[in-house]
């Protein structure tokens, strides 16, 4: 598989990969901080757990949005003669990153509702 193809697949899946990283980070950090009773630290007046969830969500949203825009631009730039797989991958990229935006957002909602370690 050539480097170009690998790049295409990564871009197509970027939204979901961003979600996976966000998920790993927020769950791992919450478990570690609460498990060790290190959650009392604050960051800019916000509890560390909430701050981490918010930041990870924001970062993942940015990645998914970039992937969305990237796929969109690539798709728009494809000419009539473009190979069918290229067309398919960029369209799939638009859909996947679009759905990922919703999922990532949902993943961040708990930070607005729940206490850190209760």
């Amino acid at each position: 598989m050539s480097g170009r193809r690998t790049g295409q697949v990564l871009l197509m899946l970027a939204g979901l990969i961003a979600w996976a990283v966000q998920f790993t980070v927020i769950y791992g950090v919450t478990s570690t901080l609460c498990g060790r009773e290190w959650a009392d630290v604050t960051l800019l007046g916000v509890g560390i757990v909430h701050a981490v969830v918010a930041l990870a969500t924001l970062a993942a949203l940015i990645v998914a949005a970039l992937s969305f825009l990237g796929s969109w631009r690539i798709h728009g730039g494809l000419g009539e003669t473009a190979a069918a797989p290229d067309r398919f991958i960029s369209q799939a990229g638009i859909l996947i990153s679009g759905l990922s935006l919703v999922v990532i957002l949902w993943q961040g909602i708990p930070a607005f509702i729940l206490p850190a370690c209760a």
């Binding site: 759905l99 509702i113 206490p115």
Partner: peptide, 21 residues
């Protein structure tokens, strides 16, 4: 399959989390 579940679940999830809290 996309819009309807997203709308419904966007309401249900926070409600569920509030009940959990």
């Amino acid at each position: 399959g996309l819009a309807f579940p997203i709308v419904v679940l966007s309401g249900l999830l926070p409600y569920g989390l509030i009940v959990m809290r």
